[in-house]
Simulated scan of single mutants.
Amino acid sequence: MTNRIALVLGLFLIAAAVIDIVLFGDRHMIFLGKKLFALIDWVAFWR
């Protein structure tokens, strides 16, 4: 992955998060954060 692709992908993810927060509030991000930590814990268990 080149630096340019990584930068564009990162900016896209940040923009998507900002749009989600503006349109729907921060409750979705809190829910997704909790689920992400559960997924990381589950993947670490199977490693």
Rank of each mutant, 00 (worst) to 15 (best):
10 G>H: 03
12 F>Y: 02
44 A>M: 05
41 D>Q: 05
12 F>S: 15
15 A>H: 06
7 L>W: 11
35 K>E: 14
27 R>W: 14
43 V>D: 01
20 D>M: 08
41 D>P: 00
3 N>K: 12
25 G>A: 04
32 L>V: 10
38 A>K: 15
32 L>A: 10
44 A>C: 04
19 I>R: 04
37 F>V: 10
40 I>D: 02
36 L>D: 05
22 V>D: 06
11 L>P: 01
16 A>E: 05
36 L>N: 06
7 L>Y: 09
2 T>E: 09
34 K>H: 00
20 D>W: 03
3 N>I: 09
43 V>W: 02
21 I>C: 03
19 I>N: 05
15 A>Y: 08
47 R>K: 10
25 G>P: 04
45 F>N: 01
42 W>M: 07
18 V>A: 12
39 L>W: 06
29 M>F: 13
3 N>T: 13
3 N>L: 15
41 D>N: 10
40 I>P: 03
38 A>V: 00
35 K>Q: 10
4 R>V: 13
10 G>T: 07
14 I>L: 14
18 V>K: 06
31 F>I: 12
8 V>D: 04
40 I>G: 00
15 A>W: 01
45 F>T: 02
30 I>S: 00
1 M>E: 11
8 V>P: 01
23 L>E: 06
9 L>Q: 11
46 W>R: 05
26 D>S: 12
5 I>Q: 14
31 F>V: 12
1 M>P: 10
24 F>H: 11
5 I>H: 12
44 A>L: 08
37 F>W: 11
18 V>H: 00
46 W>S: 07
40 I>M: 08
